[in-house]
Every structure is written in structure tokens, then in C-alpha cells.
């Protein structure tokens, strides 16, 4: 079962429990159909089902990086995103959970995927539960998720779920892939339901480095958000350190 391929799909009505969970899929697959996208979709559907069963309706948005490739490259050299890339960044900023899925090229994650991450604010995904997934042409690339995606999301201070998903051609014929998808989706759903990531980000926010007026949901954007009790702010107001 897959979710509809509509990139801004399917807001599910809110129930009394609160706002729907916002799940965002990032796929760096570039073919159509793409196994990278397929892996992400199957996982997203499983996560939605689990969250629904737990009384947490969930909306899904998909960011297909292929269509953003030129804007991502432009942003790398210009230092700022184009309009569609900015919309994707804002979507990610508001995500309660992320499924990141990339093909393996030349023994590593897709350069397009890495370039996309390179233009994100460092604090965009602090505490956000992330499910890591990759596809490859051979099972010999199985460690790429843990060796490359996991440290990347560690740098972003995201919360990668314990189970990494990897699918080589053989895996698509095996029911164990479905089991692993279910396990990883369960971990993601439990993390989201616990609220631990959001709680971590909210509670420890001031301990991370931020850029004023950045894209992160908690970013300082006005006087009301700024802490004036820091050493630097005292120095700015004529005081000493």
C-alpha cells in the first residue's frame, strides 16, 4: 500500500487530541518510479497507520529533491534559497517527523541529498525524529545509511530512529523488508507520540547556536524572542563582561 504521489497530499482532519502530526518525506530518488521514493512511501504509510491507530492523525508532505536540483545548486553558490527551495525548507522546519530516503551512488549517499542538507540551517531539525533510509543496486552498500546518513543527522542534532532501512534489489522480494519497515516506522511513531524530541528542542533551545531570523521553528525573529540577559547583550548595552 502506498500513499498518493501527490506532493502536498492529504491533510487528515484533526481530532480532539490536537493538531495532526506533520510527517515530511525527503526523497532524493530521481527516476520514476523510484525505489528510493517507494521505500519512503511504504514507510510513511506504515507510520501513518500506526499513528492513526494511536489516535494521532497525520499529514504527509513529500519533498522530491529531483525537482529542486537546480535551486539547490544555485543556493550552494549564492548562499540563499530560491522560492521553491525556501518552501521546502519551511515544510521541514515545521515537521514533527521526517523520513529521509536517498539512493546510494558511488558508495555514498546521493550528492543531491547531501547538497540539500548543506543549505539547511544547522538548527532546523534539532530534536526532530528522523527515519533514515537508502536504496542501492547491491547489498554491499548496506552500511551507507549508518556510516553516512546517521552522522549527518547527528550533526543536525536530529533524533534518528534506531533501525536504519536499506533496500537492495534482493530485498524487494523478501518479506523481511516489510518487517524492518514496520519496525522502523514503529520506532518513529513511538518517538513522535512521546513528544520527547519537541520537548528536548523546546527545553534546551537556548543551549544551541542559532542564527537570528533563521528558518527553524523556534528561531529568534523579534525583540520578544531575544534573551537580553547574556554577557554579549550586557556588553552591547554599554556594560562590561
Amino acid at each position: 500500500m502506498t500513499i498518493p504521489p501527490n506532493p502536498t497530499s492529504d491533510p487528515i482532519e484533526t481530532n480532539a487530541a490536537g493538531a495532526p502530526v506533520r510527517l515530511v518525506v525527503v526523497s532524493a530518488g530521481v527516476s520514476d518510479p523510484s525505489t528510493t521514493r517507494l521505500l519512503a512511501d511504504r514507510t510513511a504509510q506504515k507510520a501513518i497507520d500506526l499513528l492513526r491507530e494511536a489516535g494521532r492523525p497525520t499529514t504527509v508532505n513529500v519533498i522530491e529533491l529531483g525537482g529542486l536540483a537546480v535551486e539547490i545548486a544555485q543556493a550552494i553558490v549564492s548562499g540563499f534559497p530560491g522560492a521553491r527551495l525556501q518552501a521546502a525548507i519551511e515544510l521541514l522546519a515545521g515537521a514533527d517527523a521526517v523520513i529521509a530516503s536517498t539512493p546510494v551512488y558511488k558508495a555514498g549517499i546521493s550528492g543531491l541529498f547531501k547538497s540539500f542538507v548543506d543549505v539547511l540551517d544547522n538548527d532546523l531539525l534539532i530534536g526532530t525524529p528522523v527515519l533514515l533510509a537508502a536504496t542501492a543496486g547491491t547489498p554491499r552498500h548496506a552500511m551507507v545509511v549508518d556510516e553516512q546518513l546517521r552522522p549527518l543527522f547527528a550533526f543536525l542534532r536530529a533524533l534518528p530512529v534506531p533501525t536504519s532501512l536499506f533496500a537492495a534489489p534482493d530485498d524487494w522480494g523478501s518479506s523481511t523488508l516489510g518487517d524492518r519497515i514496520a519496525r522502523a516506522a514503529t520506532e518513529l511513531a513511538v518517538l513522535v507520540r512521546s513528544g520527547v524530541g519537541a520537548s528536548m528542542a523546546d527545553t534546551a533551545w537556548s543551549g544551541y547556536r542559532h542564527q537570528f531570523s533563521g528558518n527553524a521553528t523556534n528561531a529568534e525573529r523579534s525583540v520578544a524572542d531575544v534573551d537580553f540577559s547574556t554577557d554579549l547583550m550586557r556588553l552591547a548595552a554599554g556594560g562590561s563582561r
Binding site: 531570523s213 529568534e220 537580553f228 556588553l235 548595552a237 554599554g238
Partner: peptide
């Protein structure tokens, strides 16, 4: 271009 402390100092004085 990015530092509120610098804008704060401008405002203070």
C-alpha cells in the same frame, strides 16, 4: 547582517 547584539548596541547609543 545577522547579529542582534550589534543592532542592540546601535540602539543603546
Amino acid at each position: 547582517i545577522r547579529t542582534p547584539e550589534i543592532a542592540e548596541q546601535a540602539a543603546y547609543y
